[in-house]
Amino acid sequence: MPTRNSSDVIVIGAGVVGAACAFYAARAGLTVTVVDRGSVAGGTTGAGEGNLLVSDKGPGPELELALLSTGLWRELAADLPKEIEYEPKGGLVVASGEAAMCALRDFAAGQEKAGVTTQEVPKDRLRELEPHLASGLAGGFLYPQDAQVMPALAAAHLLRAGGDRVRLRLGEEVTGVLTGSAGEVRGVRTPTGEIHAPYVVNAAGTWGGELARLAGVDLPVLPRRGFVLVTEPLPRVVRHKVYAADYVADVASGSAALQTSAVVEGTPAGPVLIGASRERVGFDRTLSTEVLRRLAAGATALFPVLATVRAMRTYAGFRPYLPDHLPAIGPDPRVPGLLHACGHEGAGIGLAPATGVIVAACLADGEPPLDIHPFRPERFGPSPP
């Protein structure tokens, strides 16, 4: 069992990615200390909508991760408490015009070849799936594999499911990474003292770049701000995760400028969650009325019934963005014993289980379930001199 000051591995970050790494490492027989300067799910995870998506990913490494995670989330949902609110409700992507519908059709065809289940929905069938959807849309695609969880509870229950092999140290900021004479990881330093382990996992989310610098390597993680509008509790007005086709392009964009696209979904508790916005403004949490105006306009264009509904609150979060839109997962050859599990941008909740399985396999000298070369942390270049 982990002691106060030593374990087999230290995971930095108690969000859902760090929780998944800790859970699967514990299941592999390792003892784990999870360190976070805040609370469980106190960062990006707590500000997330809980999306588990394949619908917004084209063929490639990230989609492979998402498909693996889809199956793992189903397994976890059977074992974790119902409070994580796992809902395999599916996603519906809609097109406003024929050109957008043709682009959606091409996108879905590529996804199907990669293993995604898609169902084209003609315009006259859209309201069978979503009775309150706006008229005049050109059609859409249904993605039955899309799902949703309550992310903060999912992170908490993953950590709890690790049992006695997982120890939490919350409210402790990592101020240094300890290394040996050959540069190998020996643990971390916090204001309360040293914690020793031969492995450290950087699951620090948006602060993953800062943690990497403490270890002497460069990982160009940047925050990408997003807002979510939350309505008053409603009857089930929105049955699926519903979003406009331009959301896919926004996800793939590297622009620092403000981008918004309509994303609307209901929750088991009743409120409707409305997104999505993206902009790189550092860690500025200033409320943007322009963003909220755009989100409300996009949501009511898709679901006119929401025009009469009250928005009860809004909150901001920061997605951990890497320039090529792929996370950094696995060992860092520049520092023996250092592993990364960060940079998932807005997909971290969905990709958390696959990330945890990969990290656990690397820690336990096992074989990762897929090719992790595209996610190698050193791909952005050498460490600064």
Results as ranks from 00 to 15, higher is better:
100 A>G: 14
141 F>V: 08
319 R>Q: 12
22 A>H: 07
164 D>F: 01
351 L>N: 13
33 T>W: 03
231 T>S: 15
238 V>S: 04
153 L>I: 03
75 E>N: 10
145 Q>M: 11
328 A>T: 11
366 G>P: 03
71 G>N: 05
305 V>K: 10
377 P>S: 04
340 H>C: 15
279 E>R: 10
286 T>N: 07
108 A>I: 04
78 A>G: 02
58 G>N: 14
30 L>V: 00
334 R>N: 02
24 Y>F: 15
14 A>F: 10
336 P>Y: 12
78 A>L: 08
324 D>L: 10
47 A>K: 14
102 C>Q: 14
26 A>V: 01
50 G>C: 06
186 R>A: 14
282 G>K: 02
48 G>Y: 09
200 V>C: 02
195 I>Q: 04
276 A>W: 07
301 A>P: 01
140 G>A: 09
114 A>L: 00
78 A>R: 14
9 V>A: 02
20 A>R: 15
343 G>D: 13
56 D>T: 15
59 P>L: 08
56 D>M: 12
23 F>K: 06
150 M>L: 15
220 P>V: 08
201 V>E: 04
83 E>G: 12
201 V>Y: 08
346 G>Y: 13
161 A>R: 09
325 H>W: 02
352 A>H: 05
51 N>K: 14
226 G>R: 11
93 V>C: 12
19 A>L: 09
274 I>L: 15
273 L>R: 13
63 L>H: 10
322 L>R: 06
135 S>L: 15
170 L>R: 09
253 S>D: 14
181 S>Y: 00
118 T>L: 00
